[in-house]
Design a protein around this nucleic acid. Sequence first.
DNA 1: CGTTACGTTTACGTTAACGTAAACAAATCT
DNA 2: AGATTTGTTTACGTTAACGTAAACGTAACG
Lengths: 134, 134
Amino acid sequence: MSTDTMTIREMCDAYGVTPRTLRFYEAKELLFPIRQGSRRLFTRSDRARLKLILRGKRFGFSLEDIRQLLDLYNPQSQNLAQMKRAFVLGQERLNDMIRQRDELNIAIDDLRQQLEWGESHITDLTNPQKTAAE
Amino acid sequence: MSTDTMTIREMCDAYGVTPRTLRFYEAKELLFPIRQGSRRLFTRSDRARLKLILRGKRFGFSLEDIRQLLDLYNPQSQNLAQMKRAFVLGQERLNDMIRQRDELNIAIDDLRQQLEWGESHITDLTNPQKTAAE
DNA sequence: CGTTACGTTTACGTTAACGTAAACAAATCT
DNA sequence: AGATTTGTTTACGTTAACGTAAACGTAACG
């Protein structure tokens, strides 16, 4: 309670990221740690943002997308238009992911067939007498 | 039958790739077009290889993986060990793809929930009287 | 006071698969 | 023949998200 801020290392340990990553996110204006001299102190707010960043990444958003989306959680932009834009962005991402998954499923089935084909081929090669007999 | 070879442009049109791509594949030793002077002439063999390359890409193989796999279709390497290696490579790729798909499915479900949440939020904002009444 | 740990800034390196541009040659169309 | 098309080589540029290294400050430990 007394120390509501965390050092860079504490952050790294807490969220499984490297210092480089946190500095990178700051450079990209995704985080805004307090500066005490040259050191960074990450606030509660930074931690909330970092959680959202990591979640966004799991969703497959780019950091630039995430930066835009983070503004929504910023009290400054209580803007319906932007809100909807973000919502649309999410929908688009969802569609992308579904399409990707479907393509993956096709490729998986396709590859499965190829492998079955290859498997019998290899088994033949492993039992030369049968292959030779043919 | 008389012209069993194709120019670079014919190849591009036939397979939907750019000249740069074909030269790149040659540089990476995935294709071996005949050289007539400085011009490239792509043979039947090159076309077969290109088909496999494109299929491999759809499967998510890297070009380097594909280069290795292409050696299997080369009469030189009628090698069981290599054959099995390629087979294993295929299995691994398949496992990767299945894992990716499963992760995607999780992310999709997850994102769907977030969006439902967001949708009601936006609907609320669009009907201020209901939100204000709460 | 030396060393070890942790922090900083700056900037180049990495990976994949080509894209793009420059500068030129050869062949074909008109 | 001039212009257009198609080709060539060489080499730097692109994108994302950091990794890695250099060169340095500072702060606590023993």
